Computed example of a mutant assay.
Amino acid sequence: MTDYKLDNIDWKILDILQSDASTSNLELSEKVFLSPSPCSRRVKNLENLGYISRRVTLIDPRKAGLPVTVFVQVTMHHQVKKDLDHFAQRVLEWPQVMECYLMTGDFDYLIRVVTPDLFAYQEFLDQLTQVSGVDHVKSSFSLKPICYKTELPLGHLL
């Protein structure tokens, strides 16, 4: 399986499913011009190979009562493995953290957080600043989303 090379049909399947993960196997097979059984096998193969990591439903955070989006820049006192590992473990515990990236540049981590209000963000911030190794935190509040995508631009592979 490790030497498997994706073909145009595989890439088309990925493109369709990332746009709408609820696409039925029958619909998918018709769109990629395969019968349902081989189409289903291809999807399973793409899952086994790790191209499809999971299928989700995207929920509007405002309608879910989480209208506050904050981008948080975190600077560690030192970038030592022990502190980085501990920080990563803590971040995974917080459900309000939607994304977290180890960065290069002026700060060490960039985190996207959603909360119902500023009070809830303050509670999160209190926890964040107590993590050992955290030196500095800078918060930037989103006023409104301009662009938010979950689909990768696979057009060049089709």
Rank of each mutant, 00 (worst) to 15 (best):
E30N: 07
D135I: 05
D10V: 00
L92D: 15
P36W: 04
Q96E: 15
E123I: 08
T23D: 06
Q127M: 10
L143Y: 10
S37V: 14
P61N: 00
K5E: 15
I52F: 08
L158Q: 06
S29K: 05
F87V: 12
V131T: 07
Y109M: 07
P95W: 03
M1A: 14
F124C: 09
P38D: 09
F71A: 08
Q122D: 15
M1G: 13
I52V: 04
S37F: 10
T23I: 05
M76T: 10
W11N: 03
S29V: 02
T150G: 09
H86C: 01
Y121K: 13
Q127P: 05
V43N: 03
K5S: 09
Q79I: 09
F33Y: 04
Q122W: 08
D20F: 03
H78I: 15
Q18F: 04
L46F: 02
I9M: 05
A120W: 01
R90Q: 11
S19R: 14
Y101A: 15
L49R: 04
L125R: 11
S140F: 11
D7K: 11
V131H: 06
K12E: 15
L14V: 01
S53T: 13
V68T: 12
R55G: 00
Y148E: 15
V32L: 01
F33V: 00
V134L: 05
P61Q: 02
C147L: 11
